[in-house]
């Protein structure tokens, strides 16, 4: 499937990764249009159910991206997010979702270039993996 274009749902923190994505845009950097950004106030509010829902609705990849350790505006939301990602990485592969489909990154507000690179790399990885099983099967 050479023409497979993966869909990535990205939960991005308002204070850092979202700002970085915005910066990438205003700096006229280009990155693949496969990503749908969902702005959240902190990665600490990303309940596992959002990630699960995204996958069951057919997302090929889910990215959760927030502030670097020490930079979270709510002090430790990013550390809580890391535990939840760890948890989901134990659960989702049990049901056949490859662990590489779920990613957590720390991207600072001024890292527009890094954000564009991450998306490019993720798209490449997901193209290599192929479409998610949820796209192909009847599940709800």
């Amino acid at each position: 499937m050479d023409d497979f274009e993966p869909t990535i749902i990205a939960f991005v923190c308002n204070w850092c990764t979202y700002t970085a994505a915005d910066l990438a845009g205003t700096s006229r950097l280009t990155y693949p249009k496969n990503v749908r950004l969902i702005r959240v106030m902190c990665t600490g509010m990303v309940d596992p159910q959002y990630v699960i829902k995204a996958f069951l609705e057919g997302a090929d990849g889910v990215l959760v991206s927030g502030c670097h350790p020490g930079d979270c505006h709510y002090i430790n939301g990013n550390f809580k997010a890391r535990r939840r990602i760890k948890l989901l990485k134990e659960i989702l592969p049990q049901f056949g979702f490859e662990p590489q489909r779920l990613r957590l990154t720390w991207v600072g507000a001024s890292d527009g270039i890094q954000f564009a690179e991450i998306i490019r790399e993720l798209v490449n990885q997901l193209k290599a993996l192929g479409p998610s099983q949820a796209k192909l099967k009847m599940v709800i």
């Binding site: 596992p48 159910q49 699960i52 829902k53 069951l56 659960i91 709800i140």
Partner: peptide, 9 residues
């Protein structure tokens, strides 16, 4: 399926 996987989480 959503309900059960969420409950597991």
């Amino acid at each position: 399926v959503f309900y059960h996987i969420t409950r597991l989480a």
